[in-house]
């Protein structure tokens, strides 16, 4: 059985705001293919004030999917649409006193339903470009898509590299076989083979292998300024923990950052990056992938031998 918090159990056994909303004027239908869950969120929005006066959900899903839906409706009622859009999936998980790593996607589904419902209200088309892969590292909740992209973007060759860039494999180390398989697959695309004895750090890859920038409404300069603003905003928090974050480059929808000091070795780095990525997506209104990179070849700092 999953180790659900008391709040998750409470929201599952006594769901708030379950069912359809009478006179709803916004509906968001989303699903998560990895779990087969589906969620319909309905809102009653005051057209004058844009305040969410009522919210209701219908969920086909597991305990944490129902609890996440219930929590979401409680969190957004009384908020304006713009305030509600600031609710992140991590906020939903925090409200529920945490979710198991395998179940974080339930909170993501809640946030996506909210975005979809607000897009529906505003007459926009909401498109989900969030790609979710198989969960590889359960200690730090890193999925296969994240690992693959990071290997490609940085030309990584070893499990140690992957751990240093994504934190995947830096905990209990039992996912190392899975990481090696991904390395083998990605290296094969480049015509290379995975060498378990390899220790070399990679050269930075040529920029032509980076996907072309996605067309956006903002100019490149505007985008980078907004990205810098997000970075500046999170720095004080990281510095308080004797860490820091530095913007290295922006290529297409990939934002390369370098974690410094205590953050680089911190077990929460994966969560930090997820939060930064979320904030950038909100600031830019497009899908952004935050990729941790090393500024220069550095000695392997994390021992992977248990």
């Amino acid at each position: 059985m999953w180790d659900y918090s008391e709040t998750v159990k409470d929201h599952f056994f006594n769901p708030r705001n379950a069912g359809e909303v009478a006179s709803a004027n916004a509906t968001g239908d989303v699903g998560s293919i990895s779990c087969g869950d589906a969620l319909r969120l309905q809102l009653k929005v005051n057209p004058e004030t844009e305040i969410i006066e009522d919210a209701g959900f219908q969920t086909f899903g597991c305990g944490s999917a129902i609890a996440s839906s219930s929590a979401l409706t409680e969190m957004i009622k009384g908020k304006t649409l713009d305030e509600a859009l600031k609710v992140t999936n991590q906020d939903i998980a925090d409200y529920l006193q945490g979710l198991p790593p395998e179940k974080m996607h339930c909170s993501v589904m809640g946030r996506e339903a909210l975005q979809a419902a607000i897009a529906d209200y505003r007459g926009e088309v909401w498109k989900d470009d969030h790609e979710e892969g198989e969960l590889i590292c359960k200690c730090f909740a890193v999925d296969a898509v994240m690992i693959e992209d990071t290997i490609r973007a940085n030309g990584l060759k070893t499990v140690e590299d992957v751990t240093n860039y994504t934190k995947a494999g830096g905990g209990c180390s039992s996912c190392h076989e899975g990481i090696e398989e991904i390395l083998g697959k990605v290296l094969a695309e480049r015509g290379e083979t995975f060498d378990p004895e390899a220790r070399a750090w990679p050269e930075p890859i040529a920029s032509e292998t980076i996907p072309a920038p996605t067309a956006g409404k903002l100019t490149n300069l505007q985008r980078i300024k907004k990205i810098e603003a997000v970075i500046e905003a999170v720095r004080p928090t990281l510095q308080a923990d004797r860490g820091d974050i530095e913007l290295i480059d922006v290529q297409g929808n990939q934002v390369m950052v370098h974690l410094v000091g205590a953050c680089a070795g911190c077990q929460m780095a994966g969560l930090t990056l997820g939060g930064v990525q979320q904030q950038m997506m909100e600031a830019l209104g497009e899908f952004i992938h935050v990729v941790p990179v090393a500024k220069k070849p550095a000695p392997v700092s994390i021992s992977v031998r248990g």
Binding site: V30, S32, R40, K127, D128, E132
Partner: peptide, 8 residues
């Protein structure tokens, strides 16, 4: 058909 969610 009436409930056809967008899948991630």
């Amino acid at each position: 058909t009436s409930f056809a969610p967008a899948y991630a």
